[in-house]
């Protein structure tokens, strides 16, 4: 029984680490630019498809392919910011949200057009399974946890230590003051989109390795990301980490002990719960935008 609990916990953490990556991308965009970047899930799927085809076309391993795809994702992020969000930066928030919905349709269906409707599994070659006292630890799942952890650490260092990271934090704290200090807010916006999209791509690759990339996967992913964002607190990196893991583990346990049919409802319940218990924190932030 204990082994089963530990097994479920491990599986939940693996899935939670992917949620964390998705939420991190969303939370830095939302926290700094105030945009609910709904197309994030489709960008993630795009990255997963791209990685798959890079592996096939270039015959390279999954990690180099993922790095290339993340660079491609970053570029896509910059383009989206410039072409679609930038023109409505001073319009009411509803406009940027509708743009986000439009982008979702465009990217999601372009994925279909470019990559087809078959589900795609990113080949990794990680097929070994380690067993510790009845606890099955597939190599692939361990690598997923490690990859997610490495990316989170890298992001933290980038935000805390680099010059651009400092500029990002300055804009997040006080946009007007940052502009007065001579920070180029447009550059910051582009940087944030590049960073976030690269993280999203990484999440897409991990989903594709663990399960599959297919039409319809991105919608669920982005909602989970937003749930984590609300759960962990807006713009908070530690919040996204903890929130992602909490959501992953609670879904797994709910699936095992309550109902596998309704596990996806958990994200919604958590969102509503947090908003009911401490809406003022969230409302204050959204008014600031």
């Amino acid at each position: 029984m204990l082994v089963d609990l530990l097994q479920q916990l491990f599986n939940g953490l693996v899935i939670g680490s992917i949620y964390t990556l998705v939420a991190l991308g969303l939370t830095i965009i939302f926290g700094i630019l105030g945009i609910a970047h709904f197309a994030h899930g489709s960008v993630a799927m795009f990255g997963g498809y791209l990685t798959y085809f890079l592996i096939l076309a270039l015959g390279i391993g999954v990690f180099p392919a993922m790095a290339l795809a993340m660079a491609g994702g970053a570029l896509l992020g910059v383009v989206l910011e410039r072409v679609a969000y930038y023109p409505v930066r001073n319009a009411p928030p509803i406009n940027s949200f509708i743009i986000a919905l439009g982008l979702t349709l465009i990217i999601e269906k372009s994925n279909l057009l470019l990559f087809g409707v078959d589900q795609i599994i990113v080949p990794t070659g990680f097929n070994r399974i380690f067993t510790i006292g009845g606890l099955a630890l597939p190599e692939l799942r361990i690598y997923i946890l490690l990859t997610a952890a490495a990316l989170v650490v890298a992001l933290t260092i980038l935000i805390q230590k680099s010059w651009m990271g400092m500029a990002v934090r300055a804009v997040a704290q006080n946009r007007a003051a940052a502009i007065l200090m001579g920070i180029n807010v447009h550059a910051v916006s582009m940087f944030v989109f590049a960073l976030s999209s690269a993280l999203g791509v990484a999440a897409g690759v991990l989903v594709g390795a663990l399960f599959a990339i297919a039409p319809g996967v991105s919608g669920g992913l982005v909602v989970k990301g937003f749930a984590v964002l609300i759960l962990g607190g807006l713009g908070s990196i530690p919040g996204a980490i903890v929130g992602g893991l909490v959501l992953g583990v609670s879904e797994t346990f709910a699936s095992a002990f309550v109902s596998s049919a309704y596990k996806d409802v958990i994200a919604f319940l958590l969102m509503i719960g947090v908003l009911l218990v401490k809406p003022e924190g969230i409302m204050r932030r959204s008014v600031a935008r």
């Binding site: 939302f30 105030g34 945009i35 609910a36 928030p93 509803i94 949200f97 909602v223 937003f226 749930a227 609300i230 994200a267 919604f268 969102m271 509503i272 908003l275 809406p279 969230i282 409302m283 959204s286 008014v287 935008r289």
Partner: peptide
């Protein structure tokens, strides 16, 4: 809640 949060909640 306002703005984007509302939209996300309705989506959920």
């Amino acid at each position: 809640v306002r703005g984007h949060y509302f939209a996300i909640l309705t989506l959920a």
